[in-house]
Amino acid sequence: MVPLSWYLILSAVLFCLGVFGFLLKRNIITIFMSIELMLNAVNLSFVAFANYWNTHLDKLPSGAQMVPLSGHVFVFFVMVVAAAEAAVGLAIIISVFRTRETLNVDRVNLLKL
């Protein structure tokens, strides 16, 4: 028996670390990895809630409908989107590297005043 809030706190911690990475890292690949970390944190809370509702359906407000397993299906969709995003994002990173010869986001600043 683990309180649901432990899982949610872990998820929140991972998400915030992901945001920090996104804000503070300067390498475009690491920034992209921080985004993946945030997606993973969200997946954790989906799975935790799926398990929670499986045993706590009586806590739903009356009239509300809930299929606990749909949390798992949502994780599946998030993974598909993450895979698509990784393919396109890495292709963009490769073409940025080809034209600018750097991976540092501060050096990709042609449009900046």
Binding site: M1, V2, L4
Partner: peptide, 24 residues
């Protein structure tokens, strides 16, 4: 989360048929 954890309840190791491939 810390203040509200009392209302949330807890998570158990689910029975074996929850999360099964067939159901998903």
């Amino acid at each position: 989360l810390v203040t509200g954890s009392g209302q949330l309840g807890s998570v158990t190791i689910a029975s074996s048929d929850f999360g099964e491939t067939h159901a998903i």
